[in-house]
Design a protein around this nucleic acid. Structure first.
Lengths: 233, 233
DNA sequence: TCCCAAAGTGACATTCTCGTGACAAAATCC
DNA sequence: GGATTTTGTCACGAGAATGTCACTTTGGGA
């Protein structure tokens, strides 16, 4: 089982650049999210709250500076470090990049090694005590705290294993939607997991047991998979 | 009453460079301290706890990397952002600079405007560092004094080693959040750390022992890392 | 009502993870 | 320079987490 990785969102319209960055970040132990437009990047940022955002300055429609400003305006995303990426290297661009609230600035062509180092340097800045924490994910009577990896049910703190937490997190993030065993396997266990789909059943059972009464919110959809019911028990 | 300015320490053996930086920083509203050797820089850093340190990589006797390591090693100065400055610009130098714990890297010749921006960016990451007396960090029954490098548990003063103190400091600063062994290694030991992740375990154990009953507040999260529990024992 | 595929359940072996004590190297202190 | 402290690594063992399986129960269509 792999430790919980930092997630990095890469926003760039060029697929080649995204591929290059993704490969290097993966190799360095990061999880990678991708977006090809500013709007998409914003949406993913709000939804997934990555640890770092790598943002291309030159984007069609909504450019990097606008995206960065939008991120800074939203309390949920305002603290996420932004690493600005651009082909230009004139001083004015750097100034603009910094002034919109970017935390660092890398010019293309960049060396992957340097990029990783800068991402790490910027990711190191984790929320300390007193700094606003990303709002906990919640659904009905279930509340999740990713940083602490804790689940609170009806005000009571639960002890979950890593797998159980990931499973529950996925259900909560996709409340009301059916998740097939295959999807659960690939999302919770990883793409190359070569496991029996019935393994999911066992973990769902364990999770239900720990959730007690609330466990009934995880419904079985015969022939399709499982679904977290939006309504509380 | 005007707020006190951020203080920046400039360590460089060339007077011309110091002058240039000083003038620009002053104009940008910073207070400037200066040192011409690494040893002097270290002394001033410990004494005055500046908000940011600009450090020349090439110094006679003690070079910038050594100074940076020494800064990171001392709990009183370990959190001060370091901006590494050098005439060289090969990738290997950047890597070395980052790996000793520098927060950013600027190559000579630099544009003053960019330097100021980077200083600001880097100073922004440490909102409360330096200016006032280093506020004692505390969480529940644990209280830390960075300056004196002492920990007080339930009113009793503890003697900790440097490593133990920094480890505890990190836990306290991030109460309730899981810290992976990798994060702990890179934050406490510096991210050139070429150490076995299990080394963390050993130090956590030593720390727990010294903390006695309170040691139980440092929880093990199987498969993920350690977490300081917000609730007291 | 019967049938049977799908899902629930308990048990078990295996794999991992972590705590611990010991030890040698390195750093620090007199 | 010798003594002491600090530090990093290792091997071992206990116990937790996980994946699989055989068996039972369930539920919906024929």
């Amino acid at each position: 089982m792999e430790a919980m990785n930092d997630r990095v969102l890469v926003v760039d319209d060029e697929k080649d650049v995204r591929d290059l960055i993704r490969l290097n970040l993966r190799a360095a132990g990061f999880d990678v999210l991708e977006a090809s437009t500013g709007a998409e990047g914003l949406a993913i940022a709000k939804h997934d709250l990555p640890s770092v955002i790598i943002l291309d300055l030159m984007l069609p429609e909504m450019n990097g500076v606008e995206v960065c400003r939008a991120l800074r305006r939203n309390p949920a995303t305002s603290r996420i470090p932004v690493l600005m990426l651009t082909a230009k290297s004139t001083e004015d661009d750097k100034v603009e990049g910094f002034e919109c609230g970017a935390d660092d600035y890398v010019t293309k062509p960049f060396s992957p090694r340097e990029l990783i180092l800068r991402v790490r340097a910027v990711a190191r800045r984790q929320p300390d005590q007193g700094v606003a924490k990303p709002s906990p994910v919640r659904s009905g009577s279930i509340q999740l705290d990713r940083g602490a990896m804790t689940a609170t049910i009806l005000g009571k703190k639960l002890v979950l294993t890593t797998t159980e937490f990931r499973l529950l997190e996925l259900f909560v993030r996709r409340v009301g939607n059916i998740q097939s065993r295959e999807v659960l396997l690939s999302e919770v266990w990883g793409y190359q997991a070569n496991l029996d789909t019935r393994t999911v059943d066992t973990h769902v059972r364990r999770l239900r047991n720990k959730l007690g009464k609330v466990g009934a919110m995880i419904e079985t959809v015969r022939g399709s998979g499982y679904r977290l019911n939006a309504e509380g028990p």
